[in-house]
C-alpha cells in the first residue's frame, strides 16, 4: 500500500542535508545540520539522540516537513520535499507525518475525539468520526472520547496526541521528546504504546530524545553532535529475533488481510478502517525522482 513500488526504498531518505540559519541580517551563519545522510526504512523504530544544540530538532523539523533543507535532498515515501511550496509541504504533513509533541499540543476546548479528527479535517478524509474513535480505542482511550484535554491526565493527553498522529496512518510517526513532561509510570505507558504501534502494527517510528531510557526502546539509535551524525547503531533486541527490517509483523491496515494477533489495548477487530484512495498527486511522484 505504500506508494513505493520497491520495498527496499526507504521511507525517509536524507542525503547530504545541510541547514544553515542566517542570523543578524545574514552576517552570522549557523550550521544546524552539516551534511547529514540517513535512510530509514518502513517499520523501523529509530531514536535520534543528541544534546541540545546538536541539530536534532532541526532534523526533526525537516523530517516532519515543517522546514526544508538549505542543501541536500530529502525524500519521504519517494517524494522530494526540498523544493516544495508551503502548501505542498502542508499537504505532505497532513498525509505522511504524524506528530507527537513534548507538550501534547492539543486544542484545549476541543474534545479528545475532535482533536483526533483535526488532521483528517485538513486532509479531507471521509468517516472521520469512526476513524478517530478507532484510533482512540487503539491507545486505550475508547471510553474518554468526549473528554476535553483538561479533564485527562498527562499520560492520557499524550495518548490522545498519539491517536491524533496515527489516525491518518502516516508514513512515519514523529515523536519529539514524547515523554519529556511525564512522570515515570506515564513514561512507561506511553513508550509501551509507541513500541506496540511499531511491533504490532508496523508503524515506522522516529523518536527524538535526549534520554537514554527512551532511546533504549528503539531498534536503531542515531546520535547527532554539532549537526553531524556521529553514530548510527542498529541494536538487535532479543524480543525481535534479530530482524530489524522487513520482519513479519501484524499490519496496521486491514487491507493487508491480516488481523492483529494480539490487540492488547484494542477491543475492536479492525483498529483502523481502510485507507482512502490515495490523492492523485501521490502517483505522479511515486517512485521518486532518482
Amino acid at each position: 500500500m505504500r506508494s513505493t513500488s520497491n520495498p527496499d526504498q526507504p521511507v525517509i531518505r536524507i542525503r547530504d542535508v545541510t541547514k544553515i540559519y542566517e542570523m543578524g541580517a545574514g552576517t552570522i551563519q549557523v550550521r544546524a545540520l552539516d551534511g547529514v545522510s540517513i535512510d530509514i526504512h518502513d517499520g523501523e523504530y529509530v531514536a535520534i539522540m543528541g544534546v541540545s544544540g546538536s541539530g536534532k530538532s532541526t532534523l526533526m523539523n525537516i523530517i516532519g516537513c515543517l522546514d526544508v533543507p538549505s542543501e541536500g535532498t530529502y525524500h519521504i515515501d519517494g517524494q522530494a520535499v526540498e523544493a516544495m511550496s508551503n502548501d505542498r509541504l502542508a499537504d505532505i504533513r497532513s498525509r505522511k507525518v504524524g506528530f507527537v509533541f513534548q507538550t501534547h499540543n492539543l486544542l484545549p476546548r476541543l474534545t479528545a475525539l475532535a482533536n483526533v479528527e483535526l488532521p483528517m479535517m485538513y486532509g479531507h478524509w471521509p468517516n472521520r468520526r469512526d476513524r478517530a474513535e478507532n484510533a482512540l480505542t487503539l491507545v486505550g482511550l475508547g471510553d474518554r472520547t468526549h473528554h476535553r484535554p483538561t479533564e485527562l491526565s498527562g499520560g492520557q493527553q499524550q495518548r490522545v496526541g498519539i491517536a491524533r498522529a496515527l489516525v491518518k496512518e502516516p508514513s512515519v510517526l514523529l515523536a519529539d521528546e514524547p515523554t519529556g513532561n511525564l512522570d515515570t509510570s506515564n513514561t512507561a505507558e506511553i513508550l509501551n504504546i509507541i513500541s506496540d504501534l511499531n511491533h504490532e502494527n508496523g508503524i515506522t517510528v522516529i523518536v527524538v530524545t535526549h534520554e537514554r531510557d527512551v532511546a533504549a526502546r528503539a531498534d536503531r539509535v542515531i546520535t547527532l553532535s554539532d549537526g553531524q551524525v556521529i553514530s548510527d547503531e542498529i541494536r538487535v533486541s532479543p524480543a525481535r529475533g534479530g530482524n530489524v527490517r522487513g520482519l513479519p509483523r501484524t499490519p496496521l491496515r486491514g487491507t493487508k488481510g491480516v488481523k492483529p494477533t494480539q490487540p492488547n489495548f484494542a477491543e475492536n477487530d479492525s483498529p483502523l478502517p481502510p485507507k482512502p484512495s490515495p490523492p492523485p498527486s501521490r502517483g505522479r511522484l511515486s517512485g521518486g525522482p532518482r
Binding site: G64, L66, N86, D87, A90, D91, R93, S94, R95, F99, N105, L106, L107, L118, P119, Y122, G123, R164
Partner: peptide
C-alpha cells in the same frame, strides 16, 4: 500556538 498546531496537522495557508 494553535495556528502552529493546525499547520503541523496539515492546514494550508488558505485553510
Amino acid at each position: 500556538r494553535e495556528i502552529g498546531i493546525r499547520q503541523a496537522m496539515g492546514a494550508k495557508r488558505r485553510d
